[in-house]
């Protein structure tokens, strides 16, 4: 391959790999900015990936699959919301439970519905190509090749980065969300409902992680396979931290992590013979480094992970 083509191929791959991460990381940003730690992102992605395939299979329309992924993502997240917000339970345990539930439930339903285990058959009309109406982008010289490899989810992810940034930092709602995550009691004393804000944010986080799951199943391989999420929810969590709980920061972190994966996948084409395992490790090492504060310390919202009791002293 020509050098330019290789670079385009790597970039395209990096962006595609980053897409589900960006969507899930934005979900993490919403949830944690409001004070709820969501380590259930992984599980919600599984549910999203599964329901997207299921409903595409049933309706024949992948966009309905996407909607289903978002709805079931929210439903799964509402388990976290009930446990973490209303019952003031341990958010970490709740997250672990969601991951476990999603893993078993998706496999269970897979067997129940398709009478087979491992993977679903692939669905037709998946969203794995550049969307109609945007073909003109492919005609741009050099970059056209890049766009030709995008899926609708790529555009959605980048648009949502902007939307998330705007919502969190420019709107009244965003100010309230951040206040709830920093000092919920202060928010309540000025009449903001901490529970409502946290519920909203956890649901948004479920919606986004569900969408992320859909982008992996019908947006990448057109089917659902057990174990396909393979820790990507945790990488998204890492990206959110690495990006310092900021949507734009998280996006760059995801792109960086996507790039390391892309290089790993295309290592042989590029002619790199490093141990691929070390490339795969980069996101995790980078996150620890970021937390330790070698390059400016990443600090969580002050009340992140703490249950809030209404009317508590």
């Amino acid at each position: 391959m020509a050098e330019g083509a290789i670079i385009i191929a790597v970039l395209a791959s990096a962006i595609r790999l980053a897409t589900p991460l960006i969507l899930a990381a934005l979900g993490g940003v919403f949830s944690e900015r409001s004070g709820v730690v969501n380590i259930g992102l992984e599980g919600i992605m599984i549910i999203g990936a599964f329901s997207a395939v299921l409903f595409t299979h049933i309706t024949g329309n992948p966009w309905l699959g996407v909607v289903a992924a978002m709805i079931f993502g929210m439903l799964t997240a509402s388990i976290l919301a009930v446990l973490a917000i209303n019952l003031r339970g341990n958010q970490i345990i709740a997250g672990v439970a969601i991951n476990l539930l999603a893993l078993s439930l998706s496999a269970f339903l897979l067997e129940l519905i398709w009478k087979r285990s491992g993977a679903t058959p692939s669905v037709p009309h998946a969203l794995t190509t550049n969307p109609k109406g945007l073909e003109f982008l492919e005609k741009i010289p050099v970059l056209g090749d890049l766009f030709s490899k995008f899926t609708p989810f790529v555009y959605i992810a980048f648009i949502l980065v902007g939307v998330t940034y705007y919502v969190l930092f420019k709107t009244p709602l965003g100010l309230r969300i951040r206040a709830v995550g920093e000092h919920p009691r202060a928010a309540e004393t000025v009449g903001i409902s901490v529970y409502k804000i946290r519920w909203l944010c956890v649901l948004i986080s479920g919606l986004l992680a569900g969408l992320a799951g859909a982008s992996l199943s019908i947006g990448t391989i057109s089917l659902f396979r057990e174990g396909m999420i393979a820790g990507q929810g945790f990488i998204a969590l890492a990206a959110m931290i690495f990006g310092k709980w900021h949507p734009v920061g998280a996006m760059f972190a995801c792109l960086f992590f996507g790039l390391t994966s892309a290089i790993q996948i295309l290592a042989q084409t590029i002619g790199i013979d490093w141990a691929p395992e070390f490339l795969l490790m980069i996101p995790y090492v980078a996150t620890i480094v970021a937390l330790v504060g070698v390059v400016g310390k990443a600090v969580a919202p002050a009340s992140d992970g703490l249950p809030y009791e209404k009317g508590e002293k």
């Binding site: 388990i79 009930v82 446990l83 019952l87 003031r88 339970g89 341990n90 958010q91 345990i93 709740a94 672990v96 439970a97 969601i98 476990l100 539930l101 893993l103 078993s104 439930l105 496999a107 269970f108 067997e111 129940l112």
Partner: peptide, 22 residues
């Protein structure tokens, strides 16, 4: 019977433990 049932049981147990209050 699908073996995943046990995983679901395990997850539900965790959910109820996290939601101590229920």
């Amino acid at each position: 019977i699908p073996k995943e049932i046990t995983g679901i049981i395990q997850a539900v147990i965790l959910i109820f433990i996290a939601g101590e209050l229920i």
